[in-house]
């Protein structure tokens, strides 16, 4: 499988933020999106996942192959760690909850309510959801926020295993995960500011 994005233009709040975004990603490869805050990394990732319509351009694979990991982990505070993960496993039709808990060192916390986890533990639970989805392309937005050094290393290992198994990962991140990956500077695709419309009639307001 190959993910290729061709001449993609994305908008945020109706204003174009990126245009002409093109890249390809083969099975087993990872791509890191870099760029200053507010440049449109999140918007690009949301567009790839199908949460937003692109203004123009082509994405070669269906959104059915992607698992989206957002800023927010989507955890339910009153459900236990296992129940949270179990829900996503059922939704995606998989059953490897225990393996995912084990991989992210959450087995001991499995019966604790998500509201009693630390920020880093919540993040690990949010990332464990990716394993449960069973989807080949991981689209991750700042996956390492609030993780400690050991957990970042752990997450790097998980990514490497995922890539070795023929998966792909697309990440917006500012830190080094220790994963061999190409980097894409999103700033080069910055959209031109919208032109002042010449037929703008101030009196009409």
């Amino acid at each position: 499988m190959k993910l290729s994005v061709d001449n993609l233009a994305v908008t945020r709040g109706g204003v174009p933020v990126l245009e002409g975004v093109s890249f390809t990603l083969e099975a087993g490869q990872a791509l890191l999106l870099r760029g200053p805050n507010g440049i449109g990394k999140t918007t690009l990732l949301r567009t790839l996942c199908g949460l937003q319509e692109p203004l123009e351009g082509e994405i070669s694979v269906s959104t059915e192959t992607m698992a989206y990991g957002a800023h927010a982990d989507g955890l339910k505070a009153t459900l236990t760690v296992r129940e949270n993960l179990m829900f996503w496993a059922h939704t995606y039709g998989t059953d490897n909850v225990d393996a995912a808990l084990e991989r992210f060192n959450l087995t001991e916390l499995a019966d604790r309510a998500a509201q009693n986890l630390s920020a880093g533990q919540k993040r690990r639970l949010g990332l464990a959801r990716l394993l449960v989805t069973g989807r080949p392309i991981w689209v991750l937005d700042e996956p390492t926020v609030s993780l400690d050094t050991a957990s970042v290393a752990l997450f790097g290992d998980v990514i490497r295993e995922h890539l070795a198994g023929g998966g792909m990962a697309l990440m917006a991140t500012h830190i080094d995960l220790g994963v061999e990956a190409e980097e894409l500077d999103v700033a080069q695709f910055k959209a031109a500011p919208p032109k002042e419309s010449s037929d703008f009639d101030e009196a009409f307001l």
């Binding site: 949301r46 996942c49 199908g50 949460l51 959104t63 059915e64 992607m66 698992a67 989206y68 957002a70 800023h71 927010a72 982990d73 989507g74 955890l75 339910k76 505070a77 996503w88 939704t91 995606y92 039709g93 959801r129």
Partner: peptide, 11 residues
């Protein structure tokens, strides 16, 4: 809590 985004991308 962000689950609606994740539900919208779920199968």
């Amino acid at each position: 809590d962000g689950s609606l985004d994740l539900l919208a991308t779920a199968p």
